[in-house]
Design a protein around this nucleic acid. Structure first.
Lengths: 162, 162
DNA sequence: TAATAACCTACTAAAATAGTCGGGTAAATA
DNA sequence: TATTTACCCGACTATTTTAGTAGGTTATTA
């Protein structure tokens, strides 16, 4: 079962995109600032998300990324699947050759678990997440912090100019 | 979320123990032969399983391991928990400090998922697994193969003596 | 044309996994 | 009592994955 920061970062970034989609394309550096994820790492993740047609990109100044579908048509499972190979809990990726060509003793148990996890994450859309209270609260804090840091960096820039 | 061969091996080994518990203590080398898991690796895993009081050990010739409780009182979640630190899907281990001290945007989602997985694995006992058809079939094949390999190694030994 | 931001490839440090190796120690049996 | 069996323990290691860097190219807009 593969569910690490990679998948978590991807979902977090996509949710950030959903939360700020009203302001036109969202740049990766904005996401990087708000979510504390390194820019280059985000680039790698969004390359995969784009290939899976979950986002579309706009180049040049004022560019960034947009969700390719509406919030209620993108599900957490799709995002995790896009960046990890799968959310498979078996070691053999469902091929049933876990014990040197044969099925291992617990193969079916891990298949059941994989289904369970996949079903759970397949039912959660970005739309649902956007409306959760805990998400809204964290998002509000992040917006405030990122405005602050813009203000701070403006002050620093001004100081340098002086 | 940590669920790799480590946890899978542990559950497989414990299930092997449950399947052969009628024949007295089961040695790790038996489990190693039947399940294709390296002996030294099994030793590491069983050290943890013993500390969590899931198995008891019997030393000396004819010794091995026994389940410390009945099959219906040992659950898959307990086994996985014993060898991994947890089946936690969050990156912060539930501490809510995922984004440099603060809660990250998707923290609660991963908490929900962790609960989901834990609930699922907490409901599955070794007793249930022992009675599954797919498990019985694999176990039967493994018993046959391990008898074969004993027979083979006897023949080899006899050939060497000659 | 200067700045911005996506896009792309290759590299790398750190961590975790999945072991190996070499020695113990305790208990049973011959 | 000697030997065997099998648990016990710690240190070491190869491989893989994760997470992140570095350095460039391409497209767009002001």
């Amino acid at each position: 079962m593969r569910l690490t920061t990679k998948g978590r970062y991807a979902v977090t970034a996509m949710l950030d995109l959903a939360l700020h989609s009203d302001q036109g394309p969202v740049s990766l550096s904005d996401i990087s600032n708000r979510q504390g994820i390194s820019l280059s790492y985000l680039e790698q993740l969004f390359s995969k998300l784009r290939k899976r047609l979950l986002v579309t990109s706009v180049r040049g100044p004022g560019g960034g990324y947009r969700l390719s579908r509406s919030n209620d048509d993108i599900f957490v499972a799709q995002i995790v699947d896009a960046v990890n190979e799968s959310v498979d809990a078996t070691g053999c990726k469902g091929r049933s050759d876990c014990q040197s060509g044969n099925t291992c003793l617990t193969h079916h148990l891990w298949c059941d678990l994989s289904d369970q996890i996949h079903d759970f994450l397949s039912q959660i859309s970005l739309e649902q997440l956007v409306h959760r209270n805990d998400v809204r609260q964290v998002a509000e804090r992040q917006n405030f912090e990122s405005r602050q840091s813009c203000f701070d960096s403006d002050k620093i820039r001004a100081a340098i100019v002086d």
